[in-house]
C-alpha cells in the first residue's frame, strides 16, 4: 500500500541518501578541521564545528525518511521535505550573508574571497535544488 508512485519514491530516496551522506561528510570535516586546529581546507571552513554538528541534524532528517519514501509513503516523504526545508533555510541564510559581506567589502572592510564566501551551506543547497523540485512534483496535488 503506497501513497504515491514508488518509482519516483526510489529516485528521491537515493537522492536523499546522497544528500544525507554529503551533509555528514562535510559536517564531520568541519568539526575535524576546527578541533584538530588544521583550519580551512578549500571551500570547507575550519572554524565552524558547531555548524558541522547542525549538518548532522540535517543529514539525520534526510536519512530518517529514506525507507518510507522508497516504499512510497507520505510519512517518509515528510522527512525528505523537512530535510529540504532545512537545506533551503541554511542556503538562504548563507546567501544573505554573502550579500552582507559584499556590503562590508564595498564599505572598505574585510576581504571578499569567493571560496570563503561559497560555504558548504550554499553549494549543498544548490545540489539539493533538483531534489526539492522532485518533492514538489510528488506533493503538487496535495492540499495545504
Amino acid at each position: 500500500m503506497s501513497d504515491f508512485d514508488t518509482g519516483i519514491g526510489k529516485t528521491v530516496g537515493i537522492y536523499a541518501i546522497v544528500l544525507g551522506l554529503l551533509y555528514i561528510g562535510i559536517g564531520a570535516a568541519k568539526i575535524v578541521l576546527q578541533v584538530s586546529g588544521i583550519g580551512r581546507v578549500g571551500v570547507i571552513p575550519g572554524n565552524d564545528a558547531l555548524g558541522g554538528l547542525f549538518f548532522f541534524v540535517i543529514a539525520a532528517t534526510y536519512l530518517t525518511g529514506v525507507k518510507g519514501a522508497v516504499n512510497g509513503e507520505y510519512r517518509g516523504l515528510s522527512f525528505l521535505l523537512g530535510g529540504f526545508f532545512l537545506s533551503l533555510v541554511y542556503g538562504i541564510v548563507y546567501i544573505l550573508i554573502i550579500g552582507g559581506n559584499a556590503v562590508s567589502y564595498v564599505l572598505g572592510e574585510g576581504d571578499f574571497l569567493w571560496f570563503v564566501q561559497f560555504t558548504p551551506s550554499v553549494w549543498l543547497f544548490i545540489i539539493a535544488l533538483p531534489f526539492g523540485y522532485l518533492i514538489g512534483q510528488i506533493t503538487k496535488d496535495m492540499s495545504w
Partner: peptide
Amino acid sequence: REWSINDMLDVVFLNKRL
C-alpha cells in the same frame, strides 16, 4: 485530506527525536 503539507511538516517538526 488525509495527508496535507501541514501534516507532513508536523511529522518532522513535532518528531520525538528530531
